[in-house]
Design a protein around this nucleic acid. Structure first.
Length: 432
RNA sequence: GCCGCCGUAGCUCAGCCUGGUGGAGCGGCGGGCUGUUAACCCGUAGGUCCCGGGUUCAAGUCCCGGCGGCGGCGCCA
């Protein structure tokens, strides 16, 4: 077996070296008795040239379609006319697979259409998706890196559950032998159970929401990074989320400048991301928004349009905190100093992207939790084991959930969350 | 749940308002070009104009119904 190199290393092996690369046809042009093949692999693109005098390889090269695969061998040449300044002068093509006519062309790619979603299993090969996927890899890696570097245990919660985490949210029902089960919409309750064992825990797992949402920031299956910390309060969640997000962004800037550039993503908004993030109370937000022309009453929720307007006032992600009780789920702890509000926080990504994190302090007192469940017209019987946690050595604690796909969407500057992951699932899309 | 939009070539779309022989670009195929960069130039093939009904001498175009799809809001991460 001979040694192969990756496309990105072609320039550095030095002119005149004989190299072998394996990849796919990114572009093919025939002119002047030569075939120019731009070869793509997981690391980049490089131009290869096959001359007509090289009869056997020339014939093979001529037959290749876009995205056909090939192995080629040739000499590296410094060539200012080639993209990247180097090309491979092919001496032979030891292996090739002549693919069918590739169904995605430049026109379809430019249109950014529904068609590309139907063709996603092939579109993942595009430089654009390739770049998103590399950044996504950095993001997931950096999340694990940060939690593990800060004393958290990684845990796993079940995906099959029997009742809702939050009343009102819609669950996917599945057949579970002779009974019904549901797909989890959050691992939070399980993490809360686990803090009494491990104190600081996190998980990165899918969550499922059967909401009929048709927006650019909703999926029915999304990747949820959740953490829960014993003895922690709202201030700790501010600190944890701003440090976590800043770390992730820093890693992306270290590793993915090329990918950001392929995506046409400006890096300035990312370079601004450093702790601490501005803290904006719900009260302040209502004031800011009403000065900007909204007409919001205290107690109304801050919707997508309002979030967008609010984030445009800042150059960093912001901590929006102290939401009124009625706009947050029942498990949020009310602020003893101001009981109509909760010790809750959303982190809003800048540039109009909006909510990427929701979290805050949880109710740790049994009677307080039962009372609030009733006040929200829910049935305490549905929360038996969750209430149990408040019976045996309960402690103040706090946690949060981060929508990883939303974070990737913002970091990449994407228009739609669907493009932040390879095979998105939403209300109307279950394939490929 | 609410509001709005669309369905014409493999893909992206124009044509519809104001009815009169189905169009463009990209892609395919054939040819040309001795260095292309989303190559270019010439030629050529390719259509159930979503389906059904109606109006009309005549419907892709107007009307009614159906089907399929898209965007946004709410909800949330």
């Amino acid at each position: 077996m001979q040694d192969f190199i990756h496309v990105k290393d072609v320039a550095s092996v030095g002119e005149g070296k004989l190299v072998s690369v394996r990849g796919w046809v990114y572009r093919k042009r025939e002119i002047g008795g030569k075939v120019f093949i731009v070869v793509r692999d997981s690391t980049g693109i490089v131009q290869a040239v096959v001359g007509k005098d090289n009869g056997d390889a020339f014939k093979k090269a001529e037959q290749l379609n876009i995205e056909s695969s090939l192995v080629l061998r040739g000499y590296v040449k410094r060539e200012p006319r080639a993209p990247g300044g180097f090309e491979i002068q092919v001496i032979d093509i030891p292996w090739s697979f002549v693919g069918w006519q590739f169904p995605i062309n430049e026109d379809a790619a430019k249109a950014d259409s529904e068609y590309l979603l139907d063709m996603r299993h092939l579109w993942v090969r595009s430089r654009r998706m390739q770049s998103v996927l590399k950044i996504r890899d950095t993001v997931f890696g950096a999340i694990h890196e940060w939690f593990r570097g800060n004393g958290y245990y990684e845990v796993q919660a079940p995906m099959f559950i029997t009742s809702a985490v939050e009343g009102g949210s819609t669950l996917f029902e599945v057949n579970y032998f002779d009974s019904k089960a549901y797909l989890t919409q959050s691992s939070q309750f399980y993490l809360e159970a686990l803090i009494f064992s491990l104190e600081k825990v996190y998980t990165v797992a899918p969550s499922f929401r059967a909401e009929k949402s048709r927006t650019r920031r909703h999926l029915t299956e999304f990747w949820h990074a959740e953490a829960e910390v014993a003895w922690a309060g709202l201030e700790d969640i501010f600190t944890v989320t701003e440090n976590l997000i800043s770390h992730v962004v820093k890693r992306v800037l270290e590793r993915n400048l090329e990918e950001l550039s392929i995506l046409g993503r400006r890096t300035e908004p990312l370079e601004n991301v450093k702790p601490p993030f501005p803290r904006v109370s719900y009260d302040e937000a209502i004031g800011i928004l009403n000065r900007k022309g909204f007409d919001l009453k205290w107690g109304s929720d801050i919707g997508a349009d309002e979030e967008r307007a609010l984030t445009l006032e800042f150059t960093q992600p912001i901590h929006l905190h102290h939401f009124p009780e009625q706009v947050k789920a029942f498990y949020h702890r009310n602020d003893p100093a101001r009981p109509e509000t909760t010790l809750s926080v959303d982190v809003l990504a800048p540039e109009g992207y909006g909510e990427v994190v929701g979290g805050g302090e949880r109710i740790f007192d049994y009677d307080e939790l039962v009372g609030k469940i009733r006040r929200f017209n829910l049935n305490p019987d549905d929360y038996q084991w969750y209430l149990d946690l408040r019976r045996y050595g309960s402690v103040p604690h706090a946690g949060f959930g981060l929508g990883v796909d939303r974070l990737v969407m913002w970091i990449c500057g994407l228009d739609h969350i669907r493009d932040a992951l390879p095979f998105p699932r939403d209300m109307r899309r279950l394939k490929p």
